[in-house]
């Protein structure tokens, strides 16, 4: 074990997979210098044949990724900011997510798209989206939302070694977070949630960037109110480890989901629906969501803070839920 920055763990995962398999290549805008740091310096070890700076042509980039994957490579394509996936969305939504299905399983598409997501850095709405709800709805794309360095490395390796298109979302602005990372070669299978903290009073499912404030909230809930929250990090949204969430809810009877996406049709909405459907008999309170309201991410830091979930909002929501009183309105 060694303490590493999240972005450094991602980079190590990439380096190890590129050493392991010559078919792993990296494509994207500015992947040589790498603004987030995860592909920085790869070109020195692997050269410009395997690490390719692309023009700013997202439509082409995503389609080439799919084409190269079909033709035998394992491209890792860096989209830079998750919003830029929208520009190149055709080949993610229409080709990567569907070609295996539409061609009767003839082909697999081992392509990994990396993108930085989320708000909190005062870079406004074209660089701050949390787009996993629409990726989840595509059906044929795996969606990873690592919350810490060790998970990020292990999940990225699973994406690269797997046979399916994956979107790997890096928490924006949290790339410097430190975490313990195992020294050996390991992978984290997709679809296995992590229980970050055990508790008996309420289950809090926290996604990606929201795990950290949720763990802070859990500490406050215990210290100030004696509430024992069980915190679950799903780690991947497709596939989603429904069983772990359901087992926790069967124990606690309460569910709060913390999600940085906009509330309408969020990941939290989906998880709420799944648990309402399969776990209704266990619930003794309504399911609550702490999300971003249905607005674009504001530029002004004070407004941005106001819309993003944080530990205080999570505490308020959970406390009110357990008191049985009114909870704060969704998305505020």
């Amino acid at each position: 074990m060694a303490k590493k920055r999240l972005i450094q763990a991602i980079r190590e995962g990439l380096v190890e997979e590129m050493r392991r398999n010559p078919k792993v290549i990296v494509l994207g805008e500015d992947v040589e210098i790498s603004i987030s740091g995860d592909t920085r310096g790869l070109v020195e070890e692997f050269g410009r044949t395997r690490v390719r700076n692309m023009p700013i042509s997202e439509t082409l980039l995503t389609g080439m990724t799919v084409g190269a994957a079909i033709a035998g490579y394992r491209p890792v394509t860096h989209m830079m900011f998750a919003n830029f996936m929208y520009t190149g969305f055709d080949s993610i939504a229409n080709q990567a997510a569907k070609l295996r299905f539409m061609t009767g399983g003839q082909v697999s598409i081992p392509a990994t798209f990396i993108a930085t997501y989320g708000g909190g850095r005062s870079i406004a709405a074209h660089h701050s989206d949390t787009p996993y709800p629409l990726l989840m709805n595509l059906g044929g794309i795996n969606v990873c939302v690592p919350s810490n360095a060790a998970d990020a490395k292990g999940l990225l390796k699973s994406c690269i070694r797997g046979s399916n298109p994956c979107v790997f979302l890096e928490p924006g602005g949290r790339g410097g977070d430190m975490g313990e990372v195992p020294d050996d070669d390991y992978v984290i299978p997709l679809g296995q949630a992590a229980i970050k903290r055990e508790g008996k009073d309420v289950t809090i499912v926290a996604i990606g960037t929201m795990v950290k404030p949720t763990l802070s909230a859990a500490t406050i809930l215990f210290d100030e109110h004696g509430i024992l929250a069980e915190v679950i990090d799903p780690r991947t949204l497709v596939p989603l480890d429904e069983a772990t969430i359901l087992a926790s809810v069967s124990k606690t009877g309460r569910l709060v989901i913390v999600d940085e996406s906009r509330d309408r049709c969020s990941a939290a909405s989906h998880i709420s629906a799944v648990i309402a459907d399969r776990g209704f008999r266990h619930l003794d309170r309504p399911i609550k969501r702490v999300t971003v309201p249905d607005v674009a991410m504001p530029y002004a830091p004070a407004l941005e803070r106001a819309v993003l979930p944080d530990a205080d909002k999570i505490v308020q929501c959970v406390y009110a839920l357990l008191q049985g009183g009114d909870t704060p309105q969704k998305g505020t």
């Binding site: 439509t59 080439m64 799919v66 084409g67 190269a68 229409n94």
Partner: peptide, 12 residues
């Protein structure tokens, strides 16, 4: 839709 796919195949 096929233009970018073939660019990827040509890269391969």
């Amino acid at each position: 839709g096929g233009i970018s796919l073939i660019a990827g195949a040509a890269l391969a």
